[in-house]
């Protein structure tokens, strides 16, 4: 009876130890995954910054969309209107 209890206790201990090791590897794998995802996020941010670079955007809007700068008088600020109205 006593040896049975001892055996179960021993098995529990071994099982627990195996679980700890297994979870340890799982944590390590998730840690690496997290680092990879953070890096991926950063890389996407870099790509976003590159695509939003004003030199590129300006080339596109002037070249492909044919947009131009407003000439003086075309831009009227709301504050300015208020001032004149007041």
């Amino acid at each position: 009876m006593a040896s049975g209890v001892l055996l179960v206790g021993l098995l529990m201990y071994v099982w627990q130890h195996i679980q700890v090791v297994r979870i340890g590897y799982q944590i390590e794998r998730l840690r690496v995954e997290k680092i990879t995802l953070v890096q991926e996020g950063k890389a996407l941010n870099v790509a976003l910054s590159r695509l939003r670079s004003l030199a590129r955007v300006e080339e596109l809007v002037r070249g492909e969309l044919g947009m131009v700068n407003p000439v003086p008088g075309q831009v009227i600020l709301v504050d300015d209107l208020k001032k004149e109205g007041g």
């Binding site: 680092i35 870099v46 790509a47 910054s49 590159r50 670079s53 004003l54 030199a55």
Partner: peptide, 13 residues
Amino acid sequence: VPEGKRYYPKKTT
């Protein structure tokens, strides 16, 4: 081993 590399996304800006 991972080692940091510097990027300048706005290039010449």
